[in-house]
Amino acid sequence: MPQLQLPIFPDSCSLITPHLGFQRVDDRVVYFNGHLPVFSHACDDLASFRLFTSQLVNNGSVTQAQIARAFGVPLITVKRMCVRLRDEGSAGFFKPRPPTRGHKLTPDLIAQAQAMLDAGAAVPAISSALGVLQTTLHKAITAGRLKKTVLRVL
């Protein structure tokens, strides 16, 4: 005859449902089913958090609203993560974001800015001459779209 498992949780455990809870232990978050730990991840590991909570929702163990309430996450974020799990699988949570392309620096402006950089002009001067923000030029230099030449004086 099967025995009923009592929902006994460790002290200071926060409940998601009457049978699922979580607790922060040092720098980790541990999830419990009753008194048994079922999963853990680092406190700052957002991808693992999103993956596991989305799996709980997609498996029918919890509702999206229960996750949103238990963790203080916006409901729309929980919904988006569930869709990501369905569409991309677990790898979708761990792939890097695609790099964004600048809209202000057209190929023509990049050529002009590179010519001015090669001539030894400073970024603020290039910014005012081309009508582009200095931060945009610095981002392009950091990303490698522009090459800043260093003039050495001997």
Rank of each mutant, 00 (worst) to 15 (best):
S90Y: 06
S90N: 09
A91D: 15
G92E: 10
G92N: 09
G92D: 11
G92F: 08
F93K: 02
F93C: 05
F93W: 04
F94Y: 02
F94G: 01
F94Q: 00
K95T: 14
P96T: 07
R97V: 10
P98T: 10
P99D: 14
P99I: 14
P99N: 14
T100F: 10
R101D: 06
R101P: 02
G102P: 05
H103Y: 08
K104A: 15
L105V: 03
T106W: 00
P107F: 13
D108V: 12
D108Y: 09
L109V: 07
L109S: 08
L109G: 04
L109T: 00
I110S: 01
I110Y: 01
A111H: 04
A111R: 14
A111Y: 06
A111N: 09
A111T: 13
Q112A: 14
Q112M: 10
Q112L: 10
Q112W: 03
Q112N: 12
A113K: 00
Q114D: 03
Q114Y: 09
Q114L: 01
A115E: 05
M116W: 00
L117Q: 03
L117H: 00
L117R: 03
A119D: 14
A119M: 03
A119V: 07
A119Y: 04
G120M: 02
G120R: 04
G120T: 11
A122D: 15
